[in-house]
Amino acid sequence: MSLKNVLTTAAAILVLSSAAATAQTPTRIKQFDAWGSYSYSSSGGKVCYILSTPTAMLPSSVDHGDIFFLISQKPGQGVSYEPQVVMGYKMQEGSKVTVDVDGKKYTLFTRGESAWMENAAEEPQLVDSLRKGQAMKVDAKSQRGTATQYTYSLAGVTAALASINNCK
């Protein structure tokens, strides 16, 4: 499956899994190398986000499911550039996810198959690190206790973020 098809499928999965019953199918804004930008309308207003999939997944011996890193804008809800990790499996209860951008580490709390910044005040710093960075790794732990690691390309992240800058 091509990256374009994977990201389109990922966009649809995210909308369906967001528990927003009134959400509609996302519209692709544009693809920027490894990052795509999307938007959809929900009961809380327009939502725009960028999304990427890992370029490498470890351990290679396990079924990871669909894995995504996204950053959303929800102007109607006062949310600006909210990073989120979505895994294809439930994570270990109480575990943390670590996002490492060129050696700078950020901690995310987990709930089910998703993780968000533990300290929301650090969200702009993570987004800035992504803009300036070369590589990102995400470490997580599955519900079964399996340590997992994902590598992402940051090619196109700055252009993708710019494409949702004026989400309204």
Rank of each mutant, 00 (worst) to 15 (best):
50 I>R: 06
33 D>N: 15
105 K>I: 09
59 P>M: 03
52 S>W: 00
93 E>H: 09
134 Q>N: 15
134 Q>G: 12
120 A>G: 10
74 K>F: 03
109 F>G: 02
28 R>Q: 14
119 N>D: 12
7 L>Q: 06
86 V>H: 11
13 I>L: 12
50 I>M: 03
142 S>K: 10
94 G>H: 02
70 L>N: 11
132 K>Y: 02
8 T>R: 15
34 A>N: 15
21 A>R: 05
42 S>C: 07
152 Y>P: 01
22 T>V: 10
29 I>D: 00
10 A>S: 09
102 D>I: 02
60 S>C: 01
52 S>I: 03
122 E>F: 00
61 S>A: 08
151 T>L: 12
148 T>Q: 14
57 M>A: 04
100 D>I: 05
121 A>G: 11
64 H>R: 03
46 K>G: 08
29 I>F: 00
49 Y>D: 00
55 T>L: 04
102 D>F: 01
54 P>Y: 02
85 V>I: 09
48 C>I: 07
75 P>D: 02
19 A>G: 10
115 A>S: 11
67 I>M: 06
51 L>G: 04
38 Y>R: 08
124 P>W: 00
153 S>D: 08
33 D>C: 08
22 T>R: 12
10 A>W: 01
32 F>Y: 12
89 Y>N: 05
118 E>P: 01
117 M>C: 02
142 S>D: 07
139 D>T: 15
39 S>Q: 13
21 A>K: 13
